[in-house]
Design a protein around this nucleic acid. Structure first.
Length: 292
DNA sequence: CTAGGATCCTGTCAGC
DNA sequence: TGCTGACAGGATCCTA
């Protein structure tokens, strides 16, 4: 679920809490969620590769993590040594939005806790698809997932993207843009949103996409993700409204995602939900005409 | 090589 | 109430 904007939001938000802070202990509640052996070290850098987040330490090691569908990262300041009452603490939470953002932690979904001298970072993950992996910093870019990542929409060239669409010509365009080795950063939300913005039906065969449409799709992907990053993609601030009630950050920018039955903002037609590449897919049947 | 489906796992919801 | 199947903001593996 967390896609590029969410991971970027985490990177920026977490940076101000943990940069130059020492990790002195890691507590693992689920073995498959934490790979490798941890050794204490100070955070020197936080990097993002597509949807993967990397925390570099000063001991030559890095923590490479991927939140997959339901991962979330929640930082509680001074969890072990609280100041005067809870109001003295700050919490930063982002990733898969859920009650955990404001819940008492650790809880049933907490897989790993990373202890810093100024607080604790909780890695929660309902479905256990996500992971944190310890690896030498020099090997991060050789990691199987990272080395296969295509450029992000801001870096990819139209020629490169178009060439990949030609190779995957029989697949629906949505399935192709979800493939991180074709273009990186898009997940189910932003794929639907970008296709809507570019007025392309998700079932269109990749081989039918013109070069002009390919260029427009790249632009649309940038636009929808930039907008989400600006609004702080699924962080606690946007998830919990000022009055304390639960809010949906998708309301702030989604034009089609989870809006089936509602009206298209562009033409007033009714948004539909269909199935493409085994994923729930949202379209405006009028703005996105299917080409056979 | 591509294409399509199953799979990892937990939880929730709709429909009997 | 209890069961069952479908589905979920991802990526990989297997088969054809």
């Amino acid at each position: 679920m967390p896609e590029l904007p969410e991971v970027e939001t985490i990177r920026k938000g977490l940076n101000k809490f943990i940069l130059k802070q020492k990790i002195y202990k890691v507590e693992v509640f689920c073995e498959k969620s934490f790979i490798g052996e941890f050794t204490p070290g100070v955070v020197t850098n936080m990097r993002r590769f597509g949807k993967a987040l990397v925390i570099d330490l000063d001991n030559g090691k890095s923590l490479m993590m991927h939140l997959r569908m339901t991962g979330q990262l929640i930082f509680d300041e001074r969890t072990e040594r609280p100041l005067e009452g809870d109001s003295a603490r700050e919490r930063f939470a982002a990733g898969h939005p859920s009650e955990n953002f404001t819940a008492k932690l650790p809880n049933k979904q907490t897989r790993v806790v990373i202890y810093f001298e100024n607080g604790a970072l909780y890695f929660n993950d309902q479905r256990k698809f996500g992971f944190i992996k310890v690896m030498p910093t020099v090997e991060v870019e050789e990691d199987n997932f990272i080395k296969r990542l295509a450029p992000e929409p801001w870096k990819i060239t139209v020629d490169d993207f178009f060439e990949k669409l030609r190779r995957r010509k029989k697949s629906p365009i949505k399935a192709v843009i979800l493939d991180q080795s074709v273009i990186s950063g898009l997940g189910n939300i932003y794929a639907d949103e970008a296709l809507f913005l570019a007025k392309i039906h998700p079932l269109t065969r990749a081989g039918e996409i013109t070069k002009k449409e390919a260029a427009e799709l790249i632009e649309a992907a940038k636009t929808v993700m930039e907008k989400s990053i600006e609004s702080g993609g699924s962080t606690m601030q946007t998830y919990v409204k000022a009055d304390g009630t639960k809010g949906d950050y998708l309301e702030m920018f989604a034009q089609v995602f989870r809006r089936e039955g509602k009206k298209c903002s562009r033409c007033g037609s009714t948004i539909q939900k269909i199935r493409v590449a085994e994923r729930g897919t949202h379209i405006c049947p009028n703005c996105q005409k299917e080409v056979k």
